[in-house]
């Protein structure tokens, strides 16, 4: 009965959604702001990756909010699961093959994560993706070694300092430039964009993405750690 009602409701809702979206043009050239961003990204921001330019520069305020959401999730999780702290994870030790392999590839995964967030303005990826890659490396270690522990003090320092760096970079735009999150290293008369497709380019975009990468890596690690500690 309940299922039939749910299906009926969904059929009606789905019909209207599909009917509305069939009117939406598909596969056309970008218009409006999308077109503008594609045209201006290399000359205005110096970043090769237009998505990164939008995420960090044009819509940088969203990213500040995004970082806040992750921080908030980590904080909320810590608050909700507070009295679980200090318990040991009760995972089985993995087999020797898994253990040795993960010991070898763990540093490589972290390196890949760092590469992804440092080159966020040049290649696909960025702070969030790089941070997530680092956290998967830590997850691998959690799974294979029962005794693997992260340094909680260091993690919360990294979280806080990276967050403060982001907001401070934003406020620096307000102090030395005209607006919050303004790319203070770029622009002005000389247009210090750097050379397109070179690591040192695009002003504060890579700096912000490095801070974001550290922050996301630390937060996701803390999330995983908190969750795994509740396994009984």
């Amino acid at each position: 009965m309940r299922k039939a009602l749910a299906i009926l409701l969904l059929v009606i809702v789905g019909y209207y959604f599909i009917a509305i979206f069939l009117n939406v043009p598909f596969g056309n050239k970008p218009k409006g702001v999308g077109e503008y961003y594609l045209d201006k990204t290399p000359t205005q921001t110096g970043a090769a990756n237009a998505v990164t330019a939008i995420v960090v520069s044009y819509r940088g305020f969203d990213t500040l909010g995004e970082v806040t959401v992750l921080f908030l999730a980590a904080t909320g999780l810590g608050a909700i699961l507070f009295d679980k702290k200090g318990k040991k994870r009760r995972l089985q030790n993995a087999s020797i093959i898994v253990k040795e392999t993960s010991r070898v590839i763990y540093p490589l995964i972290v390196l890949l994560g760092a590469y992804v967030f440092i080159h966020g303005h040049l290649t696909p990826g960025g702070g969030f993706q790089g941070g997530a890659i680092i956290a998967t490396g830590v997850l691998l270690m959690f799974m294979s070694y029962r005794s693997f522990e992260t340094n909680h003090g260091a993690l919360s320092w990294i979280e806080s300092l990276a967050g403060i760096t982001f907001v401070s970079l934003g406020l620096s735009g307000l102090i030395w430039g005209t607006s919050f999150l303004q790319n203070i290293l770029v622009g002005g008369a000389q247009q210090n964009l750097g050379q397109l497709n070179h690591l040192v380019s695009a002003g504060i975009i890579p700096l912000i993405y490095i801070a974001v990468g550290f922050k996301v890596g630390a937060e996701l690690t803390a999330l995983l750690d908190n969750m795994l500690k509740t396994i009984k």
């Binding site: 970008p30 702001v33 999308g34 961003y37 998505v51 939008i54 992750l70 969030f128």
Partner: peptide, 16 residues
């Protein structure tokens, strides 16, 4: 190129 704006929005939406 494809429209970069939805990709940027999705990046935010995934994190949320």
């Amino acid at each position: 190129m494809v429209d970069p704006v939805p990709q940027a929005l999705v990046l935010t939406a995934i994190v949320i």
